[in-house]
């Protein structure tokens, strides 16, 4: 079956005074129908830019500089704003961190949901409002009729996140992009929100791309995981394979840090974690414990691992690491 989303060799440039800088580079990612893929990486790794590129929301100084994004067989790169508008919210929807900041503060949430409904379907205000009540109920907001008239500032962060989810699911969305769903929420609330999203996505048959810094969240809700570093995907694997045997040295560091955080152990402190990505060769080599001279010379491609279907890594020493010959 053809993938729902097929990103191939995507590049995003940031125009600066002295030329342009590559922010996202050679990024390829496939998301199947109904699949759930997690994207992890530290902040600044380009996760959110990737999401915006998929939605066609990059404005100068940012711009797609090559590669393709195919959604359901249709090329999105270069699509004009009017066509893109038809896709946004209807076929591909987005949820954001800090939900309250993403709601119009001067409009009732009911009205905002109704506006999203009416953006893609020619229904009357009253009908849209009726539908919005149903959506609010579906995302677990108690007393939805009354909440329709609430302004964002009158709702808690968790409630606002539910309103955003209601908007994201107002249409038969095929792909839901979930950006940092747990940022700024309590642990218990974020669990509820994630459960809700997951369950609604399942029941709607919606594919999920879940962007998070939290490996635990990805492990729990996704079937595949892609690790981003410095605008590139450095490892792409099934969740099972990834947690069993991560290959890329960066993935291994991430995983160790997550385990340490869970066990309450002292955070692994390395001064190398502050180093910026390398400009040439492998971007991670300055922080990499197993880097060799060759890593500075060639930028490795994202290559499939021998003998492990669906597992790829962007590391010259991947085979050796996978075979257990060296410990990264």
């Amino acid at each position: 079956m053809a993938p729902l989303l097929d990103i191939g060799a995507l590049g995003v440039d940031l125009a600066t005074a002295g030329g342009s800088r590559r922010i996202v580079d050679d990024l390829s990612l496939r998301v199947g129908q109904r699949e759930s893929v997690g994207i992890v990486g530290e902040s600044g790794s380009g996760k959110t830019i990737l999401i915006r590129a998929v939605l066609g929301l990059l404005d100068p100084p940012l711009a797609v500089a090559g590669g393709s994004i195919a959604f359901d067989g249709r090329e999105l790169v270069g699509l004009d704003e009017r066509r893109f508008r038809e896709i946004r919210g209807r076929d591909i929807a987005l949820t954001t961190p800090e939900p309250r900041k993403h709601l119009n503060p001067l409009l009732t949430v009911g009205r905002q949901i109704a506006n999203v409904i009416r953006a893609h379907r020619d229904v009357a205000h009253a009908a849209a409002a009726e539908e919005a009540i149903g959506l609010l109920r579906a995302v677990g907001i108690p007393d939805p009729e009354r909440r329709m008239a609430a302004y964002p500032h009158e709702l808690s962060g968790g409630m606002c996140q539910r309103v955003i989810i209601a908007m994201a699911l107002a249409h038969r969305t095929r792909l839901l992009l979930v950006d940092e769903p747990t940022a700024g929420l309590d642990v218990t609330i974020s669990r509820q929100i994630l459960d809700l999203m997951h369950q609604l996505a399942e029941s709607h048959g919606t594919a999920l791309v879940l962007v998070s810094r939290d490996l635990g969240v990805v492990a729990h809700y996704c079937r595949r995981v892609a690790v981003m570093y410095a605008g590139r995907i450095v490892e792409d694997a099934s969740v099972a394979a990834f947690f069993e045997r991560p290959v890329h040295p960066y993935s291994r560091q991430l995983l160790r840090a997550a385990v340490a955080a869970r066990d309450g152990a002292a955070r692994e402190r390395r001064s190398s974690a502050l180093l910026p990505p390398a400009e040439t060769g492998c971007a991670f080599r300055l922080r990499c414990p197993v880097a060799v001279a060759e890593c500075a010379a060639t930028a490795p491609p994202l290559a499939p691992l021998a003998g492990a279907a669906g597992h790829a890594a962007r590391c010259l020493r991947a085979a050796a690491i996978a075979a257990g010959e060296i410990a990264a």
Binding site: L55, L57, E81, R85, E86, I87, R88, G89, R90, A93, L94, T96, E98, K101, H102, L103, N104, P105, L106, L107, N115, V116, A119, H120, I164, M167, A168
Partner: peptide, 22 residues
């Protein structure tokens, strides 16, 4: 952010402007 989100939700240019204007 809310105009950006309105755009991400597929609201028309006109609606984005109305959100901003208000």
């Amino acid at each position: 952010d809310f105009v950006l989100y309105a755009r991400a939700a597929g609201l028309s240019r006109m609606m984005q402007w109305r959100y901003a204007l208000r």
